[in-house]
């Protein structure tokens, strides 16, 4: 996808996802794309968030360098709590104190179910991926969660082969019927093409926003099912000068995420 914009689709994705955070919230930060997004929110519109990670750390201070993994030692600088997985994922997450979780995903389906486990038959997979880590628990228990991924039609099948990270399962009431806590579930899927949300009753993923320079039809062609549109689907406001400046010069000045080849 050629960009004629003065910013990249990756930057737009990071910025759009950051806007999902409200100031003062408790945010669980997964690995990879969530990291620049959460850091950007912290340094712009949401300075009072509390951030926690799987390994057991809680901080309300942006670390001096951008973490390259959610358990990066740099997070320990100025952290307010450093303990175990049973603290952050047990007491705070299972205890019901996490407002929003940010996760990276490999594939996501019509009901927001994420597969990071395997493609094809589970026992003899065609492609074997990494697996859950803490993503599955986080998606089961967070009041809402935001899924981030680079947009590619192969990453948007109608149904995933394996539900690593539960969205709304089969839609409607199925998530709650499975036994997952009430008032939990995905609130947005943020990609390099737009922002998707979930229809109130069917819980089907719908297009809420498309980025500048892309129209609705283009986005629809990059999803593996007949994508429905949210009422009032709109163009995402492009990055503000401030968002871009902070992202490039304060969040990731070395380009660890913004220049992807640096870390891959």
């Amino acid at each position: 996808m050629m960009s004629v914009m003065p910013y990249t689709p990756i930057e737009m994705m990071i910025i759009a996802a950051a806007r999902e955070i409200r100031d003062g919230e408790t945010v669980f930060m997964g690995t990879y794309w969530p990291i620049p997004s959460v850091m950007l929110a912290k340094k712009t519109h949401a300075p009072h968030i509390t951030i926690m990670v799987e390994g057991g750390l809680v901080t309300d201070a942006a670390p001096p360098r951008i973490p390259l993994i959610a358990a990066d030692v740099t997070l320990s600088m100025n952290a307010v709590f450093c303990g175990e997985t049973l603290d952050t994922m047990g007491m705070f997450l299972h205890g019901g104190h996490v407002d929003v979780t940010f996760l990276s995903a490999a594939m996501v389906d019509k009901y927001g179910n994420v597969n990071t486990t395997s493609v094809g038959n589970y026992a003899s997979p065609r492609v074997r991926m990494a697996g859950s880590g803490g993503a599955s628990d986080l998606a089961c228990l967070s009041k809402r969660f935001v899924i981030m991924l680079e947009h590619d039609i192969n990453r948007f099948p109608e149904r995933v082969d394996y539900i690593t990270t539960p969205g709304y399962l089969d839609g409607y009431e199925s998530r709650q019927e499975a036994g997952l806590p009430k008032d939990t579930g995905p609130s947005a899927v943020v990609t390099t093409m737009g922002v998707f949300r979930f229809e109130e009753y069917s819980k089907e993923m719908i297009l809420a926003e498309h980025y500048q320079g892309l129209d609705v039809d283009t986005v629809k062609k990059h999803v593996g099912w007949e994508l429905k549109l949210a009422e009032g689907v709109k163009q995402t406001p492009p990055p503000t000068e401030e968002e871009l400046r902070v992202l490039r010069s304060e969040v990731d000045p070395q380009g660890m995420y913004l220049q992807e080849e640096r870390t891959k």
């Binding site: 597969n115 599955s136 628990d137 394996y162 539960p166 499975a178 036994g179």
Partner: peptide, 13 residues
């Protein structure tokens, strides 16, 4: 006992 894992691939496989 936990409330996680319910409805996921972890309880199917």
């Amino acid at each position: 006992a936990t409330k996680t894992m319910l409805g996921t691939g972890f309880v199917r496989h």
